[in-house]
Simulated assay, not measured.
Amino acid sequence: MDKLIEVNELFFRYNEEDQWILKGVSLFVKQGEWLSIIGHNGSGKSTLAKCLNGLLLPEKGSVRVNHLDTRDESHIWDIRRQVGMVFQNPDNQFVGSTVRDDVAFGMENHGIPREEMLIRLDDALKQVQMEAFADREPHRLSGGQKQRVAIAGIIALKPSIIILDEATSMLDPEGRSEIIRTMRLLNKEHGVTVISITHDLEEAIYSDRIIVMNHGELLDQGSPRDIFKETKLLKDIGLDLPFTVKLRQELQKQGCPLSDRALFQEELVEELWTLRSKI
């Protein structure tokens, strides 16, 4: 797969007197993948997210999106059209009096013709399963519905990449599940590249690849199965393990001969049934 984003030896701090927030971070993002960037509060993951679409610029090193350097002012709007961001609090993102108006707002700012805008609006709402709410007032929606509307506003602009910056952290379990289902659909069926910035490892298990950040540095990376084999490392930096992994470990401590493979509840149940059938 092509590399949509390439980060090379990225250093960033907000002021010259401050300590570095990001220290020599190098990574890439492949076209069509779901990449989770995890770490505790203060690890630099949200600052990194803002560097990926040019909201923040490197002090040292480089960030390239589709071969365009974020420090090149002539390309910054092209980059931001390719990289859409969904932030933590959906209420801070709404500007329209209805869902329809809100999704249309970004397209109006980009000068998209009305005929095209109407087609994109309907398509974006269908992709996040919010077409029935088009004439509702955004503030009357649930948390998960609000975030789906925010995602629809990004989808309508047809970015190559969507970044979720702690976008599920203020939602209840049902709302988080809604957003994960929506992003899986966009990623797997529509080919949207997804970057999830999160400290919720229950969310990260759905990604194709995980990058672990700690104190502004890239600590580890790999598939979810590889990352969750290194549970001591994750605990040492203050991250809570997914429920299935914790349950599996407790069962292993009690002498249950389970493998280290199961990440999802269905996988753990299947392995337990297999063991039971051998007894």
Rank of each mutant, 00 (worst) to 15 (best):
R64L: 10
R64C: 06
N66H: 05
H67I: 00
L68K: 12
D69E: 11
D69A: 11
D69G: 14
T70R: 07
T70P: 05
S74T: 13
H75P: 05
I76Y: 00
W77S: 11
W77P: 02
I79V: 13
I79E: 06
R80I: 09
G84I: 02
F87P: 02
Q88A: 02
Q88E: 05
P90T: 05
D91I: 03
F94T: 05
V95Q: 07
G96I: 11
S97L: 08
T98N: 11
V99H: 07
V99Y: 08
V99L: 10
D101F: 00
D101M: 09
D101W: 00
D102W: 01
V103D: 12
V103P: 12
V103C: 03
A104V: 09
G106M: 02
H110W: 11
G111E: 04
I112K: 07
I112R: 08
R114L: 13
E115R: 07
M117H: 10
L118W: 13
I119V: 15
I119K: 13
I119A: 11
R120Q: 12
R120M: 05
L121D: 14
L121F: 09
L121E: 13
D122I: 03
D123S: 08
L125T: 09
K126F: 11
K126D: 15
K126N: 12
V128D: 02
M130R: 06
E131N: 06
E131W: 01
E131C: 00
A132I: 09
A132V: 12
F133S: 15
F133E: 08
A134V: 08
D135C: 02
E137P: 01
E137T: 14
P138G: 09
P138R: 09
R140H: 13
S142M: 12
S142H: 07
Q145V: 10
Q147N: 05
Q147A: 10
Q147P: 14
R148D: 00
V149H: 08
V149F: 04
V149Q: 09
A150R: 03
I151G: 02
A152W: 01
A152L: 07
G153H: 06
G153F: 05
G153L: 04
G153P: 12
I154L: 01
I155R: 00
I155D: 03
L157C: 12
K158R: 15
P159K: 13
S160T: 14
I161N: 01
I162D: 02
I162V: 15
I163K: 00
I163C: 01
I163V: 15
L164N: 04
L164A: 04
L164W: 10
D165T: 03
E166S: 04
E166I: 01
T168F: 09
M170G: 10
M170E: 10
L171C: 07
L171E: 05
L171N: 10
D172H: 06
D172R: 03
P173F: 14
P173W: 14
E174A: 11
G175W: 15
G175P: 13
R176G: 06
R176E: 04
R176C: 10
S177C: 01
I179T: 02
I179R: 02
I179Q: 00
I179L: 04
R181G: 01
T182H: 08
T182L: 06
R184P: 01
L186A: 13
L186F: 13
N187L: 12
K188W: 02
K188L: 05
K188Q: 11
E189I: 09
G191S: 13
V192H: 15
T193G: 09
T193D: 07
